[in-house]
């Protein structure tokens, strides 16, 4: 798969989408009526992510929890992105949407294999195509020993959208445009330590 070498458009709303990719996020922010709290039982904003959420460990998706969703939230979408990578930025590590509005978070380890069921309470949720073109979480692997920031953005939506799996970030943002009633986020960071690279023989 050469997701980096080719762009991809979805039949629903295709024309000039790539060119508009950057501008479609702007109205979203303006529309957002409310902000809410996003946290994690295992990560803190502004601190290092545990190694298990990266290819230095098991590379499973981290748990998230949210509080104070706006009234009328019917569905939730989550994007994990690195604004300091990608051409053009951001580099997308994870996209998950069609999450029921009743959900209060995501458990650790959302299946990367689409044939496995979503955990209880997340029925209907599907994953979109990350920067590698894969519908799954793949965690931080910043080059060398550089420090990168990972922005988990959670969108509260006012409608139950039945979106197909595999949407790219641009396609998802286009699809939820006009339905975002709340926004929450948290941004931990990660660095691959030189000592991480010493392994047992």
């Amino acid at each position: 798969m050469s997701a980096a070498a080719s762009s991809r458009t979805q039949m629903s709303a295709r024309s000039a989408l790539c060119a508009l990719a950057f501008t479609v996020c702007l109205p979203l922010a303006a529309e957002a009526q409310a902000t809410f709290v996003v946290e994690s039982p295992t990560m803190r904003a502004g601190e290092m992510m545990p190694r298990d959420y990266s290819p230095d460990g098991r590379n499973v998706s981290p748990p998230l929890a949210w509080r104070g969703l706006p009234d009328g939230t019917r569905q939730i979408a989550v994007i994990c992105q690195d604004h300091g990578a990608g051409n053009p930025p951001p580099w997308v590590h994870w996209i998950i949407y069609n999450i029921p509005g009743s959900a209060t978070g995501l458990p650790e380890g959302i299946p990367f294999d689409e044939s496995r069921p979503m955990p209880p309470g997340l029925e209907g949720a599907v994953q979109g195509a990350n920067g590698w073109g894969m519908p799954m979480y793949r965690g931080p692997a910043p080059p060398g020993t550089s420090l990168h920031h990972y922005h988990f953005a959670v969108f509260a939506l006012d409608a139950e959208l039945d979106l197909p799996p595999g949407l790219t970030r641009d396609e998802l943002l286009e699809a939820i445009d006009g339905h975002v009633i709340g926004l929450g986020s948290m941004t931990p960071h990660y660095r691959r330590h030189p000592e991480n690279q010493e392994i047992d023989p």
Partner: peptide, 17 residues
């Protein structure tokens, strides 16, 4: 499979293995 995905996508490159 998870290991092979990291090998495929290059995540294993920076692990110094």
């Amino acid at each position: 499979d998870s290991v092979l995905i990291d090998v495929q996508l290059g995540g294993a490159t920076g692990a110094g293995v």
